[in-house]
């Protein structure tokens, strides 16, 4: 079963933020090697999602990466504010 990366990432980001309704996760591209996911959050929430030294962003990336590796894919996640 193919993994829904948008849902995986969105379910990780939403609990962290003050404005979950302003979280937008889009899959920019997917082929048999690489998935690119774009995460947009409210300006005030950007720090929450990135974390000190980007450690929360990295944690989210690592979890997504593990999930993608099961399908022998790589994943990149871009995080930005509106």
């Amino acid at each position: 079963m193919a993994v829904n990366y948008e849902k995986l990432v969105s379910d990780l980001v939403k609990p962290l933020v003050v404005h979950p309704d302003d979280v937008e996760v889009k899959k920019l591209s997917e082929d048999d090697k690489l998935v690119t996911v774009q995460v947009l959050v409210h300006q005030d929430d950007l720090g929450r999602v990135i974390g000190k030294n980007g450690r929360i962003a990295n944690a989210i990336r690592t979890i997504a990466y593990a999930s993608a590796s099961r399908e022998h894919k790589k994943i990149t996640i871009n995080i930005d504010a509106f």
């Binding site: 450690r55 944690a59 999930s67």
Partner: peptide
């Protein structure tokens, strides 16, 4: 069923799952 996937190389994924969860709960 897939512990190795969740643990990751040298426990990296496991560390990150824990880090994410700790940060989340601390909010």
């Amino acid at each position: 069923d897939e512990n190795p996937v969740l643990i990751g190389k040298n426990g990296k994924t496991l560390e990150n799952i824990q880090f994410y969860l700790r940060n989340l709960l601390n909010i």
